[in-house]
Simulated assay, not measured.
Amino acid sequence: MALTASPQDQARLLDLQGLDTRVRQIEHRATALPEHAEITALAGQGVALRSRLSAATGAWEDNQTEIRRLESDVEVVEARAKRDRDRLQTSTSVKDVQALEAELVSLAKRRSDLEDIELELMEAAEGLRAELDAAQVEHASLQGRIGLAEQSRDAALAELRAEQEQVEGERERLAASLPEELVALYEKQRARYGYGASLLRARVSSAAGVALTESDLAGIRTAAPDAVLLCPESQAILVRTDESGL
């Protein structure tokens, strides 16, 4: 048996379709928020900045490790030199004295060489520390910008969710007030074709955006006002009104 519904109930399907369209628009706005693109762009900057920060941290730590190693080597040389000087004070062997004096000369040169290298590393440390500090400041600034963008995004999403909940509530109440079989057909067609109801105005189907053919219109003209018809173009329920141009 063909489905029937009052013209008034069929016309209210347009309101239902309007609410569904609003829900889709809200969902699209939620996915198209400018904050999404901003966060993605900032995250991309973060990848490069983290790489730079990691490199700067590694260079600084390597520099400091090398300085500590040299300081340790200098301490070893100094201890060795002190031991040789102490032995030199008590040695009575000319051969031992000559050997100790030669070793002290060698140790003095070794210490001088180590201190020169240490000085170079300490001078380099200033630039490495400055680069590390700059990278840390930029990273902190970027994290702050990301945080602000995320807060803005979350606030916008919260507003959209509230709006969507309101629209979905209106939709639920409207759907509950319409005949169950009519709503079921509407849902079926909307799920399949994207639109559940289409207004026929001046012989144009709003869902399809095209004028119906004369042969299609002829069949529509002869249908009873409460007959539920499907648009031959969009397959949505075709809502007829005084503006349909029949």
Rank of each mutant, 00 (worst) to 15 (best):
T4Q: 08
Q8H: 09
A11I: 13
A11E: 15
L16K: 05
L19R: 02
D20R: 15
T21L: 12
R22G: 05
I26F: 01
E27F: 00
H36F: 01
A37H: 00
T40H: 03
Q45C: 02
A48Y: 03
L53C: 09
A55C: 04
A56G: 05
T57I: 11
T57V: 04
E61R: 09
I67A: 07
V77N: 04
A79S: 15
A79N: 13
R80N: 06
A81H: 11
K82V: 15
R85Q: 15
R87G: 09
Q89D: 15
T90F: 12
K95L: 15
V97G: 12
Q98E: 12
A99T: 08
E103K: 07
V105R: 02
E118C: 11
E118K: 02
L119G: 15
G127C: 06
G127K: 13
L128Y: 03
A130K: 10
A135K: 00
E138M: 01
E138Q: 13
A140F: 05
Q143A: 07
I146S: 01
L148S: 11
E150L: 08
Q151S: 11
S152W: 08
A158F: 01
R161L: 14
A162D: 09
E165D: 14
V167H: 04
E170W: 14
E170N: 11
E170M: 15
R171V: 02
R173G: 13
A175V: 00
A176K: 10
L178D: 02
E181V: 13
L185W: 04
A191W: 03
Y193S: 02
G194A: 11
L200D: 07
R201N: 02
V204H: 10
A208Q: 03
L212I: 09
T213H: 06
T213V: 06
E214R: 06
D216F: 11
I220E: 04
A224R: 15
P225A: 15
D226M: 07
V228Q: 02
L229C: 12
L230R: 15
E233D: 10
Q235P: 01
I237Q: 03
L238R: 10
L246D: 00
